[in-house]
Design a protein around this nucleic acid. Structure first.
Length: 382
DNA sequence: CCTCCACTCTC
DNA sequence: CCGTTTAGTGGAGG
């Protein structure tokens, strides 16, 4: 999977021995991005706890924290935490709560990405606030890489006004772990010779892609640190976690990662979920929502020139369980009528199949093909 | 091989 | 006290 064009090209012949040319990968991460962007346009916020929130619209205060700056984090406020709980923790702290403004964050992000692009031929953006840069062809060694990183940090601060954290390593995983260890406003360079000693003592959940669940399962096997993981039988890992994750865990525990830095492909799915005013299983209040969401999603599909062949609904029940229902169409389409009919049908059937009330409802499209110039659409096949 | 769905992760 | 979006894996069943 990792070994595509780029890394194959990097294989050089050396007296009959093959080796993969060493890469130098940089990860730049915009610190507590949404909150920092808010401080940027309103400097009077600096020094105060700033909490950027996704309001659900259910009640005045319902919703969760998207990002909190470090002043707020000192009070135990974290991403994903209910706003009400964050308020409790920050009571009497002169904190500021703001709603997310993605259009603004996107604009700020683009200014930063434009600068970053000058520092590599290959930039892989991850969300609005992160990007991997392959700087192998821009620097000779890790000392020069550190100079480049400092320069990048300086330029982003001077030209945009944002603090970033930069991690540098021989691959994406190490660059990411270095950045995580160095934030905020940090810089860490991990040379190939230092990889093992850097990662060995870290808990396994510091490995990108290892979250709470995987970490708990590993702990059940007596694996707490990356060192433990590196010593664990890879065959047993594959047994326990499957081919992909098992192999990934083994490789990453040894600091190995061939995944190339590549500009992201176009997205493979579009979805939108909304929170209902109150929990309900009433078709009359849910189906109009479904249709509304269909309209937005279809508009995006048309704008991006894509046809979808799979339609799905996503229901979050009152007990916060996630249920999905999908249907594949006989042919790709971007027809709004089809999207509405099929998603309403899926929603109706789902509602009939359960006793649970819904808290949120959403629509999903996937299995895309690009609409060719002048391609006829197969509307009305029903 | 395809379809459907649960689950995990991340920001 | 409870958001949003996307990618990916894997199992069950056909």
């Amino acid at each position: 999977m990792g070994a595509s064009a780029e890394s194959r090209l990097a294989q050089l012949s050396d007296g009959g021995e093959k080796f993969v040319a060493r890469r130098i990968v940089l990860l730049a991460d915009l610190d507590y991005f949404y909150s920092q962007a808010e401080e940027l346009r309103n400097p009077s916020l600096a020094g105060k706890p700033v909490v950027v929130c996704v309001y659900s619209g259910r009640t005045k205060e319902s919703g969760v924290v998207a990002t909190a700056n470090y002043e707020a984090r000192r009070f135990g406020v974290r991403s994903g935490m209910p706003i009400a709980l964050a308020k409790k923790r920050l009571s009497g702290a002169d904190a500021v709560f703001l709603p997310v403004d993605f259009a603004y964050y996107k604009e700020v992000s683009e200014r930063v990405m434009r600068i970053m692009k000058e520092y590599s031929d290959q930039l892989e953006q991850v969300g609005l606030d992160e990007a991997y840069l392959d700087i192998s062809n821009r620097v000779e060694n890790f000392v020069e890489a550190e100079e480049l990183a400092r320069e990048l940090k300086g330029r982003v601060l001077r030209e945009v006004g944002l603090k970033i954290t930069v991690g540098v390593g021989p691959n994406k995983i190490i660059a990411k772990m270095a950045s995580d260890a160095a934030k905020p406003d940090g810089l860490m360079v991990v040379k190939p010779d230092d990889v093992k000693s850097f990662i060995a003592p870290l808990p396994v959940d510091k490995i990108p892609g290892v979250g709470k669940k995987t970490a708990e399962r590993l702990e059940g096997l007596g694996v707490k640190t990356v060192r433990d993981l590196a010593q664990f039988d890879p065959v047993k890992l594959v047994d326990e976690f499957g081919d992909r994750l098992g192999a990934y865990l083994h490789a990453s525990s040894r600091g190995e990662d061939e995944d190339p830095v590549v500009g992201k492909a176009e997205s493979g799915s579009i979805s939108k979920i909304v929170t209902l005013k109150e929990n309900t299983k009433d078709q009359k209040s849910i189906l109009p929502k479904v249709e509304e969401i269909c309209e937005e999603i279809q508009k995006r599909a048309v704008k991006e020139g894509i046809l979808f062949r799979t339609i799905g609904i996503i229901a979050i029940t009152a007990d916060l369980g996630i249920k999905t229902r999908t249907k594949s169409l006989p042919a790709p389409t971007d027809d709004l009528g089809i999207l509405k009919r099929e998603s309403s049908e899926l929603a109706k059937k789902f509602l009939q199949s359960t006793d649970k009330e819904l808290r949120r409802i959403g629509v999903h499209i996937s299995d895309f093909t690009r609409r060719e110039r002048g391609q006829t659409t197969l509307a009305g096949y029903l």
